[in-house]
Amino acid sequence: MVLAPEEWEAVRLSLAVALRSVAFGLPPAVLAAWLLARGRFPGRALLDALVHLPLVMPPVVVGWLLLVTFGLRGPVGSLLDAWFGVRLVFTTAGASLATAVMSFPLIVRAVRLSLDAVDPGLEAAARTLGAGSLDRFATVTLPLIAPGILSGAITAFAAGLGEFGAVITFASNIPGETQTLPLAIYAATQTPGGEATAARLAAVSLALAVAGLLLADLAGRRLAVALGRPLR
């Protein structure tokens, strides 16, 4: 299958945006999952709801909220612009941010599931052996939840390739800048004679999604074996 240069550009941009969204979203997502699974603090239920909001809200609303917050006149966006000269609206970074917010709950859920499966007794044992809290997390908890983190990251990556509503609302549809695969497909369907382009990009999109899911499953299994846990 041969793609036109601008079609390749959309594929490349999609991969870059999804990769960045995962890279920046992963650490806070693991932290949030850990707080939700192990933490006991006031406002835990609120955090839980907040984390899962992108899952149930229309993506366009998420994009709009981002626009209001991170826009040039928004409370955060104006400060970012004034202090660092960083502009998120209508940029690739902005597309990555919108994608990260949308896929955040996916990672949190996967990590939290694997955290719930970690026997707190192991952490207690590490404690009696002299390991402080960071030490325990790094040497016991983190390796044991690695399969969850990996599969969450891959799922988020695959989903991030296809994020549409939040991206187009917050970052707009600029070829080479914010026009990712789904946006390019949408643009193609709106253009007379763009059916072939739409079909090719849709095929690429489908292939990437399937590959991502298979990879997530495989990686999770491999890692579980490497960590000494028998497959169920």
Binding site: A125, T128, L129, G130, L227, G228
Partner: peptide, 19 residues
């Protein structure tokens, strides 16, 4: 705190680190 008590504990379920 337990990590500084230096009490070695042998649990009923061993609790070896599987990884």
């Amino acid at each position: 705190p337990p990590e500084r008590r230096r009490c070695g504990v042998v649990f009923q379920d061993a609790r070896l680190f599987p990884h």
